[in-house]
């Protein structure tokens, strides 16, 4: 099993190694802009849920950055490998199972998300905001990465071109980026809208990260919801891989 997952991880590691500078800069440019524009600009001085707005904002940005980085890493590498480089075939023809392949991709994506999330926290420190973190903060980041890597994997197995991949990003990822309690408190929203937004996994992730950062408690329900999404996305991706292999 580990023997089968390792080559998938190593493949992604080389991609990372060859372009870590572009990966790093593009992972933090968005978050820096959010911190400056929304945190310091728009919300400067005000407070939300008892903390300064910047402190409120940064866990949300960590959540959305983790999500986008893992999603993008895996959807890009898989869509490219399947449609353009045809490297996906190399894994299909190799003596490894699809399960190992998908697991490898999910872990690789999770680590990429984790890396980007850590970068954001580093940037936050430069802006003078130090978050309170606990081990479960990191575990939630990793779980978030797994979840969205699997969503990216599913997307990349479905689309026919990079243009399709971009559309998938615009219609699925972009709304989550802005709506899921990342930039504002959901308490202010009308009940129905709030219920809808709580259907998205990112809402639960940003809620949990923020709770930890502000010394509050989150519920097991949040964790289970994200876990359920992870399993669902993983199974969908695995199913698509089997279909493409058939």
């Amino acid at each position: 099993m580990i023997r089968e997952i390792w080559p998938v991880l190593w493949d992604e590691w080389i991609v990372f190694k060859r372009s870590w500078f572009q990966i790093t800069t593009s992972a933090i440019i968005g978050p820096i802009l959010y911190i400056v524009a929304f945190g310091l600009g728009l919300g400067g001085g005000s407070s939300l849920q008892g903390v300064t707005y910047v402190k409120f904002l940064i866990p949300g940005i960590v959540a959305l950055t983790t999500m986008n980085a893992s999603y993008k890493a895996i959807s890009t590498s898989l869509a490219t490998g399947r449609i353009y480089n045809k490297t996906f075939e190399q894994f299909l023809i190799a003596p490894i199972s699809m399960f190992s392949y998908c697991t490898g991709k999910a872990i690789a994506g999770s680590l990429r998300g984790f890396y980007a999330g850590m970068m954001v926290m580093g940037v936050a420190i430069l802006f003078g905001v130090r978050l309170h973190v606990t081990p479960d903060f990191f575990l939630i980041m990793l779980l978030s990465g797994l979840t969205f890597a699997c969503l990216g994997m599913f997307g990349a197995m479905v689309v026919k071109s990079h243009a399709d991949m971009n559309r998938f990003g615009t219609f699925v990822m972009l709304p989550m980026t802005f709506l899921c309690g990342t930039f504002f408190s959901l308490d202010q929203l009308p009940f129905v809208l709030k219920e809808i937004i709580y259907l998205f996994p990112l809402t639960h992730i940003s809620t949990m990260l923020r709770a930890i950062a502000t010394y509050e408690a989150y519920t097991v329900g949040n964790l289970l919801t994200v876990g359920a999404y992870f399993i669902a996305f993983f199974l969908l991706a695995l199913y698509r891989c089997y279909k493409v292999a058939a």
């Binding site: 080559p7 493949d11 080389i14 991609v15 372009s19 480089n85 045809k86 490297t87 190399q90 190799a94």
Partner: peptide, 16 residues
């Protein structure tokens, strides 16, 4: 061609 474009030939073989 089904090769990882940003690997060296040695790395391609190593992955295999």
């Amino acid at each position: 061609f089904s090769l990882q474009r940003d690997m060296t030939p040695r790395e391609v073989l190593k992955l295999h």
